[in-house]
Design a protein around this nucleic acid. Sequence first.
DNA 1: GCCGTTTTCGGCCCGACTGTTTTCAGTCG
Length: 573
Amino acid sequence: MDNKEIASIFNQIAELLEIKQDNPFKIRAYQRAARNLESLSVDLTDVYRSGGLKALQEIPGIGHDLSLKIEEYLKTGKIASQKALAREFPKGILELINIPGMGPKTAQLLYKKLGIDSLNKLKMAAQAGKLQHLPGMGEKKEANILRGIGFKEASHGRFLLDDATVHAAMIVEELEKLKEAKKILPCGSLRRGQETVGDLDILVISDKPKPIMDKFVSLKLVKSVLAHGETKSAIVMHNGMQADLRVVPAKSFGAAAHYFTGSKGHNIHIRQLAQKKGWKVSEYGIFDAKGRQIGGQTEEEMFSKFGLQYIPPELREMRGEFTAAAAGKIPRLIELGDIRGDLHMHTTATDGENSLEEMAKAAKHLAYEYILITDHTQSTRVAHGLDAGKSSANLHKIKLAAKNISGIRLLAGAEIDILPDGSLDLPGEIIKQLDLAVLAVHSNFKMPREQMTARIIKAMQRLPGSILAHPTGRLLGEREAYAVDLNAVIKAAAKYRCILEVNAHPKRLDLTDFYCRAAKAAGVKIAISTDAHATDQLGLMKYGVITARRGWLEKQDVVNTWPLAKLQRVCGF
DNA sequence: GCCGTTTTCGGCCCGACTGTTTTCAGTCG
């Protein structure tokens, strides 16, 4: 997809213009355009194909000039002005301004005065104490830069959603012990449910910030303290994750929660709406022209004051949420409590850790009505996949167990490998015995995009009404998605009544939010499944649900919110 | 460079923390 690529080029142009100390508003224009492209819910190629430059200019932040640059990229694969700009500076200078604590001004100073144009040169100069004598610099700044380099080298970049969730909970648990903390809310990209989280943003409501700040910076999980102020502190934890804490009074709760949740683009938009009314929005509230607070105690007010419907955190990505909210068209998003079953899980028959009975019992605890048991087929050897005979025996076993287990309906399924030629790794007569089939690619990930797309579509065509599991095969932080034309897959899913899976495992979260929305628009139904390999993994469902929420999905879009009877009727078993 | 039921020119989100200053610049979110 070109959206991210172009966004990255615009960001790079912004960085270069910053070093050049160009017009700051021009820089912001590039940054804003990049942000909007990153979160765009349509493919730029499609936008351009459908309406040319004019259609591109309908994207917020894209005007005459930038639409031409996008066109240039789509046609030639590069943007000449970026190349020209990059030639004005040594290559390494961009990595300098990405060091925490270093910005364009400092980078420029160090380049001009000391000829520093790489991370390595910077490190050596700082260690030799050459930075502290420059104007505006000092011992502490030099030490800070060295720390920033260390932080960057040790930094893990982004963290998985469950990792971030667990660490946020650990901080919340400690802060809750303080009587001064009236309310604690993890915000930021974690609250918006982004697939990975860069850092934690935790909001605390209190009239006495000091004890909270002091406790926060001295928690056991703190590796180093980046900032320790009266109402705002920042720390780095032992796992390399950064956490920011902010304390505001109760009357500012809504405004602060909104501000701290983001996204950045969403926040800026609200503040611009306020400006137009002659008001001001900050993390402390909504204020009129005379500086009186007229809203912001609750988060609902942050929208209602502007005549907008409440926008759930997962939708605050500048993907059309303001237009929808103004028109009263914010969907009623699916909730974890809507889930009635799990349609993808493994048992000891293949690579699961728990037996059929144990999985059923755990699912009953979650008050599920049904589960689909989906052990692997023979091609997936690493997972001890079952051949035709063993698959058949396993199905009998599931059906027998279904009769003996009360309170939950066990459905007999299989996770059938889609072989490289698009055929299925289980004979037709055994497939017939399944209640519901899950199809998945587990091999030959390196196929060319056209072949992979054809392979998957062929499999769906062979087995209409099945579920396509983890449609891109990605493992966040480990393995790239295989090349596949998901728009074509979605189209085929609509044609063959196939269901697309949102795999709830924090490493997968695939389908992504972006394509959930595309699937919905195409009338394709979604299954949110955990792919659990042990009883405790059934609890990962919440991450799938939040991804579906980010894809604007409602209860009726997700098949495993349906009662069993409806699922049987629609899927025909 | 974008944008406009006040404007096609003149605006452009808002505030905290740090360090080097002695009133503020740079950076961050």
